[in-house]
Each structure stands twice: as structure tokens, then as C-alpha cells.
Design a binder for these strands. Structure first.
Length: 492
RNA sequence: GGCGCAUUCGUCUAGCGGCCUAGGACGCGUCCCUCUCAAGGACGAGAUCACGGGUUCGAAUCCCGUAUGCGCUACCA
């Protein structure tokens, strides 16, 4: 095992937790658990404009659902708090002031309007956009004048005009960047809040983060962070950038690609263990064949070295398959408990609530190997609950059957079943097979008529098991209704 | 535009110089099982390893170009 790491997941509370972000959190968590390290949750709420009420709760909800427990952070405490950046403002301001004092940063008084005009002009001239460093060398008098005018400045980092910044990324390898390509970026906004660049450097250092795990999009800003570490005389962390999840158009997955919040997947009936397994396999692999792994197996085998470097397309068909595998592995009791809330929610309103859990327990073995998501349960099993079945009489007449033979089959079944002492699987099978013989039709033909009569479906769980759960009374009632449907239809 | 990163079946991936006439999985097709649907089993189609040059006895694997894609280039993260 490698040395225990200290890693952090640092989301900004701007909405519902994106599946890509949670995947990052999962890699953090995996590395922490694999090495016996510490997983920290830190809230990067430094953008007052974009802050969304309740977003932190959503985030924690999603993390908890996936089983990604954090050791330090909101609700947990820890020795390096507070874990909300909005409560650490002084730290950033001190760092910014220190950099200004030592000549590595400066106050900039340029208005947003000027910056905007500058960018437009650069674009028109096909120059690469970037701050023109107007305020980099303001004289004390000029600065005093701006201050006197009441302009609230931002603090910009004084990026070296030449040289290169190099760093080693554990996944992507060595990366080099010319300093001349980087402009004097803003570290501290005029409202006193830090930008991501400053805040993440200050906090990662203060919180003794050993490995920074974040998505690939950050590679190009890593050099800025390194410059600040150097200026602040901090030891930088290890960088681990990982590829993003992309949508069908290969662009980074976003809202317009459909469901993107982890919470959506929970609502769609995916199991957290399936989601965990699936997400782990997007970007990481154990070997050339292992796919289904318990959380524990993933933790034991996880390693950064086995992570890929190309963006992965979110293949929901494969998730469906995997979810099915996990559902099939559930005990009846477990499945029952997980399906219950979905049934309560998705069954037609006329079905009486609360649902009978013992009845549901009986249904589970019948649908367990047929559903792909928990949400499928309601559509798969609604005929167990509703009183009035809706279907076309023509459905009762199967292949090589006529109204007459179907009618005869139903009447024969009605007679046979009503005389049955007990309503168990073997007895049902035995008497119905004999009935088919007596009627001179194939067993399948008989069974299919009964299937439609009892369930209004032509695809259901095995007939006898289904009928047993439905019960004698209900089956006979439904068969009678089917007989009258056919009777009316034949118009005799 | 500049810079950065990436590029193996439709998709997720294995592969870190010879084991590759490229393996697994999802999906797809055929068959078996079977009361339907699933599940399960068997088989199959599917990748000239983006392209072009090198290096090497030998390259999907190393190097250099090109193309394409994505990202960054905000007082957003």
C-alpha cells in the first residue's frame, strides 16, 4: 500500500451534483481509502453570484448515497477547518497582501468595461486575449489617485514574463507551459473574495493536501497554481488530472445531454452499488476482463497508474445491464425495501396506499431478473395491483387460435380452476397441462390466453407463479371478464 | 488565433517492443433452454490500433509531423 494521502473534493455549490463531479469525488475517496488516508470535503463557495441555496445539501446527499463518506468537512469537523471557503476569507486576503508586499502581485483598477473593450480589440486584431498589464507598473501617485476615486481594485498575480513552468502529472505525465502564454490573472476579486486559483492554493496548503485530483480541464491552469506555490514558498501537491465524461457529441457532459445529476440516477432507479461500479470503470480498470466488483474490491485494487487518459462517453445501456446484474444479486428482502418507495410513487393513483409489503415481497422473485432499474418495477408489476385490467379482446386470441378456441380455453380453465382445492404452482401446472390436452391445443396456446386474461400482457413472469401470487379469486374473476370480453366481441 | 491535452471494435476498455492474424464487456445477430418475457449457455458479425513519416531484426506500443476532437485563454469554478 502507498503512503496515506490527504485528498479533498472541492465542489462549488452551484447546482445539483453533476455525475462527473461525483466521479472525481469517487477517485478521491478511492485513493484515500486505498492508502488509509483522509478524504476531505471542502465547499468552494467563493462565487457569490452563482451560489445556489441547498446545493451543499444536494452534494452531501449524493456523496452519502454513493457511500463516499468524508473524514473532514461539513458535518464532520476536523483540524483544518472551517471547510467553507466563505469562512476563510481572511486567509486569502492575507496571502494576497503578502504577495503584493513582496512584489509578486499588484492591485488592478481596470473597470470591467475597459477589460471588455480590450478583449474585443485583441480579438479583432487576432491577438491572443489576456490582460494587457496596464496596472502592473502603476506609480504610487497613480495608485493613490485611483484609490481616491473610490475604485475597489482586484489583485492580480504578477506572472513571470519569460521562462517555463513544468510539472509532473501522475496520469498525464510531464507538462510544460511557456510563462509568456499566461496573463496576469485575478487572485482576489474586488468584493474581497478569492478566485479559485488563489483559494485552492491557499487551502490545499493549509489543509496539507498531498494529491490534487481534479478533471483534465484544469491542466491548463495548473501552471498558475504552481507559480503561486512558488511565490508563497509552499511545497506544491502532487497533481492528478483525470479525463472527463463526455456526451454523445464528445463534448464535456452537460445538462443538454440529458440526465447529468447523480440524484437523477437515483430517481431513475439505479442502485448505488451499480453506479459506483460503473463510474469506477469509466477511466479506471482492474485488468482486461474484470467488470463486476464490490466496493471493497475496487478499494483494494485501485491505483492511479491504471487510470486512462481519454474522455469516456456515458454509456447508459451498459449501466442498465450492470444495474440488472446488481438487482439480480439482491435478496428478496432487500429488493422489497428498495422497490417499495418506487412503487408507492409510480403505481396508478387508484391503487390503495400504503402498499402491502408482504404482497410486494411475494412479487419480487417474479420480477427480479426482469427489471433493469427499480423504477421498472411499477410498469412490470402494475397488474398485480390494479383492479381493472385494460386490454383489447383481440389480445386473447393468440397464434393459431380463434375466438372459439380461446373462449373454450378460458371456460375450461375457469371450470378447472374453480374446482381446485388449493392454488399452488404444481397443482396449477398439472391441471392446466391436462386441460390443454383435453382441449386439443398446445400448452403454450392455453397458457398465453390465460396470461393475457390474468395480466393484460403478453409478456409476464412465469404464468403459474404469477397466478399463485394473484390468488385464486382474482384469477377467476379476471378469467370471467375475459370470457365476457370475447363473448361480446364475437357478437353471437 | 495562441497554448495545452487526447486519438485501439458503435460504446467502455485490455495492451506499457516480439505472447496481437489485437483480448474482455455492453449493445447487436443466430442458436440452445423455455408457457410468454427475461435470466442463463453457445456461437458470430464488428478495430487495416486517426493518418503520414521515421527508429528497430521486429511497433497498437518509442520519436517527429499532419488531421480531428476536447479544454483553457472570466473580478466562474
Amino acid at each position: 500500500m502507498d503512503k496515506p494521502v490527504r485528498v479533498r473534493f472541492a465542489p462549488s455549490p452551484t447546482g445539483r451534483p453533476h455525475v462527473g463531479n461525483i466521479r472525481t469525488a469517487m477517485f478521491d475517496w478511492l485513493l484515500a481509502r486505498h492508502t488509509g488516508g483522509t478524504f476531505i470535503l471542502r465547499i468552494e463557495d467563493t462565487d457569490v453570484e452563482r451560489r445556489v441555496e441547498g446545493a451543499v445539501e444536494y452534494m452531501m446527499d449524493a456523496l452519502n448515497w454513493l457511500g463516499l463518506d468524508w473524514d473532514e468537512g461539513p458535518g464532520k469537523g476536523g483540524d483544518y477547518g472551517p471547510y467553507y471557503q466563505s469562512q476563510r476569507l481572511e486567509l486569502y486576503q492575507d496571502a494576497a497582501a503578502k504577495l503584493v508586499a513582496q512584489g509578486d502581485a499588484y492591485y488592478c483598477y481596470c473597470s470591467p468595461e475597459r477589460l471588455d473593450a480590450m478583449r474585443k480589440e485583441q480579438e479583432a486584431r487576432k491577438q491572443s486575449p489576456g490582460y494587457d498589464r496596464l496596472c502592473r507598473n502603476l506609480s504610487p501617485q497613480e495608485r493613490a489617485a485611483k484609490e481616491a476615486a473610490g475604485i475597489k481594485p482586484v489583485v492580480r498575480f504578477k506572472v513571470p514574463l519569460e521562462g517555463q513552468t513544468k510539472f509532473h502529472d501522475i496520469i498525464y505525465g510531464d507538462i510544460t507551459c511557456e510563462n509568456s502564454n499566461i496573463d496576469d490573472f485575478v487572485m482576489l476579486k474586488s468584493d474581497g473574495y478569492p478566485t479559485y486559483h488563489l483559494a485552492n492554493v491557499v487551502d490545499d496548503y493549509a489543509m496539507k493536501i498531498s494529491h490534487v485530483i481534479r478533471d483534465e480541464g484544469w491542466i491548463s491552469s495548473a501552471p498558475r497554481h504552481l507559480m503561486m506555490y512558488k511565490a508563497l514558498n509552499y511545497e506544491p501537491p502532487q497533481y492528478v488530472h483525470h479525463p472527463v465524461i463526455v456526451g454523445s457529441d464528445r463534448a464535456k457532459l452537460s445538462k443538454r445531454h440529458g440526465a447529468t445529476s447523480l440524484l437523477d440516477f437515483r430517481n431513475m432507479g439505479y442502485l448505488p452499488e451499480a453506479m459506483f461500479n460503473f463510474l469506477a470503470l469509466m477511466g479506471w480498470s482492474l485488468d482486461d476482463k474484470t467488470e463486476i466488483m464490490t466496493r471493497q474490491q475496487v478499494v483494494e485494487n485501485f491505483s492511479l497508474e491504471r487510470m486512462g487518459k481519454t474522455g469516456a462517453f456515458f454509456n447508459i445501456e451498459k449501466l442498465d445491464w450492470m444495474n440488472g446484474v446488481y438487482i439480480r444479486g439482491l435478496t428478496v428482502e432487500d429488493l422489497t425495501n428498495r422497490v417499495l418507495p418506487f412503487l408507492e410513487k409510480d403505481l396508478p393513483p387508484e391503487v390503495k396506499r400504503p402498499l402491502d409489503i408482504n404482497y410486494i415481497r411475494q412479487i419480487m422473485p417474479l420480477i427480479r431478473e426482469r427489471i433493469k432499474t427499480l423504477k421498472d418495477a411499477a410498469t412490470y408489476a402494475d397488474f398485480f395491483f390494479v383492479d381493472k385490467l385494460e386490454y383489447e379482446a383481440s389480445m386473447l386470441i393468440g397464434k393459431k387460435m380463434t375466438t372459439e378456441t380461446a373462449l373454450a380455453a378460458l371456460k375450461g380453465a375457469e371450470e378447472k380452476l374453480s374446482s381446485l382445492e388449493s392454488f399452488d404452482h404444481d397443482l396449477l401446472e398439472d391441471s392446466l397441462r391436462h386441460l390443454a390436452d383435453d382441449l386439443g391445443i398446445k400448452t403454450g396456446q392455453l397458457f398465453n390466453v390465460l396470461r393475457v386474461a390474468c395480466t393484460a400482457r403478453d409478456a409476464t413472469p412465469p404464468l403459474f407463479e404469477t397466478m399463485v401470487v394473484l390468488g385464486k379469486e382474482r384469477c377467476l374473476k379476471r378469467i370471467k371478464i375475459a370470457i365476457s370480453k370475447l363473448g361480446n366481441n364475437s357478437n353471437l
